[in-house]
Write a protein that binds this DNA or RNA. Sequence first.
DNA 1: AGGTGCATGTAACAGGTTACATGATTAA
DNA 2: TTAATCATGTAACCTGTTACATGCACCT
Lengths: 175, 175
Amino acid sequence: MSDELTATGRVILGMLALGKNTGYDIKQLVDKSTRHFWAASYGQIYPELRRLEEQGLVRGRSEPSGGRPRTVYELTGAGEAALRGWLESPAEPIYEVRDESMLKLFFSDSAPGSRADILRAMRAMHERTLAQLRAIEQHARAGSPGPSLTWQLGVAMSEWMVDWCERQLAEQAKE
Amino acid sequence: MSDELTATGRVILGMLALGKNTGYDIKQLVDKSTRHFWAASYGQIYPELRRLEEQGLVRGRSEPSGGRPRTVYELTGAGEAALRGWLESPAEPIYEVRDESMLKLFFSDSAPGSRADILRAMRAMHERTLAQLRAIEQHARAGSPGPSLTWQLGVAMSEWMVDWCERQLAEQAKE
DNA sequence: AGGTGCATGTAACAGGTTACATGATTAA
DNA sequence: TTAATCATGTAACCTGTTACATGCACCT
């Protein structure tokens, strides 16, 4: 009944602003773009699309491809307004991190021997993120001059984290 | 029935390795140390302490202060082993971020006018984190030489983020 | 006498993941 | 023909937050 725009709803509206899409497409887009700072699963996307339609923010049209059912969604005027409203809202933005490596590092005085292993696992993780970001570089262009700002930030941050781990490992080695 | 160590369970064991504590103490400790990369609420801590006791990983002793009930927990041998086991586990560490500012930035082509506002809100948020970290600097020492590694990382990362926002705002101004 | 901090706890809710089920289409 | 991809969906589960309730102790 609530007509609040949920977190998942915002991603969906944003993704639909980039073009008409199915629920499946939206999931692919998220996985290729925002997932390192904002993930979403089918279990959220499909029910949320229904709710957004009930609220009149999106409109779904059945466009089967062959005998395979397929529903393509697009923003309504109200949906565009809701998206703009969110983007311009001065509300304190959500910022949440859950970093198990840092937690381990924090407690690693209880098991000093494992510190280097933790740092290596941490570095490996950020290297994987970096590799994934680089693999999707071409998708990170909005048809525009260079890669998107968030893609650049993701890469720069991951590189910084890898560097930090390296520096700490060097420190550890000295002792 | 499962004897898996849950995420909250790990924080609790770690915090208890730093000394005997009540559930309340653990929450205060988390809020003054790990909460920027790993949060926990009373709603998780109290039930989890019970579960950990059932599993034999912690032992609670009733130590009322005056007429006020109070249960102080400490690690058992099995608890210490479980903590070490987790710290040394090579399992892929959890790393999750939910950053609404980045999400807004990603979509801000749909409302280009709001980009500078988003960057300012983002900068303000990281500045708040930075201020909070600096306010707890003294707690960030384990009695040891300098502030803890994770505290240093938190500060350095926040500074880097503030810088990045600043640079982007300068870019924006040029155009 | 009243406010703050200590201390415990829970119920309702919100948000999200995983695993599963189904079946058509397309490229190898 | 068969594997991968397209496409939709849901039920069970897990994790975690918020809001609330309770009441003592201590300081002013």
